[in-house]
Write a protein that binds this DNA or RNA. Structure first.
Lengths: 270, 270
DNA sequence: CAACAAGTTCGATCAGTTTCGATCATGCTG
DNA sequence: CAGCATGATCGAAACTGATCGAACTTGTTG
């Protein structure tokens, strides 16, 4: 195995899991720990990763954005920290072996990071989610038929027979453009019909919306609010909105952005 | 073997695998390691690759290996050069705007490299092909429904309504486990049913098989040989097999691994 | 809170192996 | 025969894996 090849593997792993131990890398590259240490030193010298005790971490919080999003620049995801916290809380609802549906969206995409330790059966219309799960998890991935819309990398079909009927899940996770007493709002008609097909296949509907969504207005109503079983949001939710959710008889989970697993760059892995 | 031919092979390998060992190149070119070293030194001098200890790497490492392939050692694709040539010849059959079907396989996957300049409408059951096209081309991508099988990253469904009926193409491109007078052979029943559904949606069927496939035996017959309209293979095909193909009334296209699109701008070796 | 003990991890060092580049002999081509 | 590419050989350099003392982290105790 070549130096470059090892470097590539290490960086690849880091782009998926953000941190890794020396032992992880040694196993992945087939080299000894001594060699991995040297590699890490070299890569750190090139500024391609940050070395820390026990292993290394990616320089930039990796893969926080889906395929379609233009990585840097304007494509920055708003409220990213909140969304990650919300996504983590959502994944915490899943148990090993569960069948779930993940609807495409910037918030739900954040779920993939936490999913790589579980073996789930996942139906998703998000190409990005599918891609990440195939690369970095042991999950089984089901896809609906349709064409891939490039802006959001979502698989959409105008036809009823998109294959989703063959999948049955306990929970479906989805984001939304807006949430109010009027219902769950979305933007695009094609997306709505896709989401409605997915919703039919799940027992529970879990809504992942950061607190700003309670103020957002959108043109089309996807479903009445009560259709959701739970809502996961962040701590900035207004009391008024809490009451609205409670009035609709929906479980509310408030995720704390600060209390995820380590955000601290200089920490060790152990 | 001429110097130029070796250079072409080396660059071709590098464009496929990003890095390669001296031993790899020696095997591929049939030359000794000493010669390969000289070639690498010359190519590095021309700025066409970067030399590194143990081998060389491409200047711009493109992600040309399919998702499933473990990138390292064992995942090496057999007859890669032949397959690339075959794939290039196959893409040459397509015109801007065409609707085509690409069935998953190591040979058909090589088509994506040449497809990034065309705007095609592509139905594929290969997750890797879809991924590459979405990233690196302007093609429209359609997917069938089903679960993604990890070994080969193929989307397979046991159900008839996998969405393929909504797509119509002029040509379908597919590989095969084996080809003989008995028919087109495949290995797996689920793959076969998926391929049969795809085949119904295309006017022409183009078979991409390197010459070794004419000798390969497999257990299941996908379709009679005459179902194919054309076969694209490499120059090592035996005369006997040529006759068999001709007897079935099938167009035969022989792709030459050495004579791909021109790689040399104007460089003459000083 | 400080001190200590146990367990990891790190960096340096050393021996063994691989690879490099230069040199030389051989064989092909014009 | 001259010119050139190729293949083989060999000392030098680079890389790898193992080892060991030092430094660090963690948990416990006084």
């Amino acid at each position: 195995m070549h130096e470059r090849e090892r470097h590539r593997i290490i960086l690849d792993l880091l782009s998926a899991r953000a941190v890794g131990t020396v032992a992880d890398f040694a196993r992945a590259t087939g080299g000894s720990e001594a060699t991995v240490r040297r590699d890490l030193a070299a890569l750190a010298g090139q500024g391609r990763l940050r070395k820390l005790r026990g292993g290394a971490e990616a320089l930039q919080p990796p893969n926080l954005v889906a395929l379609g999003t233009p990585a840097g620049a304007a494509g920055a995801v708003p409220n990213l920290l909140e969304k990650r916290a919300i996504a983590r809380a959502a994944v915490a609802l899943c148990a090993e072996g569960d069948a779930i549906i993940v609807n495409g969206g910037t918030t739900t995409f954040q779920m993939v990071h936490a999913m790589d330790r579980l073996k789930l059966q996942v139906l998703t219309n998000s190409f990005s989610v599918a891609e990440h799960l195939l690369r970095h998890s042991a999950c089984t991935v089901f896809l609906p038929s349709g064409s891939v819309y490039r802006e959001q990398n979502i698989i959409l079909s105008p036809f009823e027979d998109d294959g989703t009927v063959h999948f049955r899940a306990r929970r479906m996770f989805m984001g939304a453009q807006g949430v109010s007493a009027l219902g769950i709002m979305e933007r695009d008609a094609l997306i709505i019909s896709s989401e409605q097909r997915l919703m039919r296949q799940a027992d529970e509907l879990v809504l992942l919306v950061d607190s700003s969504k309670f103020r957002a207005q959108s043109s089309m109503i996807l479903a009445p609010l009560a259709r959701a079983t739970r809502i996961v949001t962040d701590h900035r939710i207004a009391d008024e909105d809490r009451r609205m959710v409670a009035a609709a008889g929906i479980d509310l989970i408030v995720a704390d952005p600060l209390r995820g697993r380590d955000h601290n760059p200089s920490a060790s892995i152990a």
